Computed example of a mutant assay.
Amino acid sequence: MFGEPRRWARRRRRLVDALWLTPLALTCLISVLYYDRPDGSAWPETSVGTVGYVLLTVVLLAPLWWRADRPREVFAVVAGISLLQWLAGFDPIPANMSVLVALFAVAAGCAARWAVAAWLISELGLWLSLARFVDGGTGIANLKGFASASGFVITIAIAGIYVNTRRRYLESLEERAERAERERDQRTAIVAAAERARIARELHDVIAHHVSVMVVQADGAGYAIDGDPEQARAAVRTISATGRRVLAEMRRLVGVLREDDGSAEEYAPQPGLAQLEDLLRQVRASGLPVESSITGVPRDLPEGEQLVIYRVVQEALTNALKHGGPAASAVVEVEYRTGEVVVRVRDDGRGAAAPAGIGGHGLIGMRERVAMYGGAVEAGPRSGGGFQVTARLPVGRAA
Rank of each mutant, 00 (worst) to 15 (best):
V308H: 00
E315G: 07
G324F: 10
D300T: 13
I309G: 07
Q306V: 03
T318E: 01
E335S: 14
A316R: 07
H323A: 11
N319P: 04
E303C: 04
P302V: 04
G304A: 14
Q314G: 01
K322N: 01
G324S: 11
V331K: 15
Q314D: 07
A328V: 10
L317T: 00
A316K: 06
E305G: 04
A327L: 14
D300M: 09
V334A: 05
Q306S: 04
N319V: 13
A320T: 15
V312D: 10
Q314C: 00
D300Y: 05
K322S: 00
Q306M: 02
Y310V: 02
R311M: 08
L301W: 08
A327V: 09
G324H: 10
G304W: 01
H323K: 05
A327K: 15
G304K: 00
P302A: 04
E315P: 00
E333L: 12
E335N: 13
E315Y: 07
T318R: 07
V308S: 02
A320V: 10
A330K: 06
R311Q: 13
E303P: 08
G324E: 07
E315T: 12
H323C: 06
Q314K: 09
V312Q: 12
A320F: 09
G325Q: 11
L307Q: 03
L307N: 03
A330H: 07
S329D: 03
E305D: 10
V331F: 08
A330T: 07
Q306C: 03
V332W: 12
G324C: 10
Q306D: 00
L321V: 15
G325E: 11
V313C: 14
G324L: 11
L307Y: 04
V313G: 03
V312A: 12
N319S: 10
E305Q: 14
V334W: 06
V332C: 11
E303H: 12
Q314R: 07
K322L: 05
A316M: 12
V331W: 12
A316W: 12
V334I: 15
L317H: 00
A327W: 12
V334L: 15
E335F: 08
V308F: 05
A330S: 13
V334R: 15
G304C: 07
T318Q: 06
D300E: 13
G304I: 06
E315Q: 13
V308N: 01
A328G: 08
A320L: 09
T318D: 00
E305V: 01
A320M: 10
E315H: 14
V313K: 01
D300S: 12
E303W: 07
D300L: 11
V331A: 15
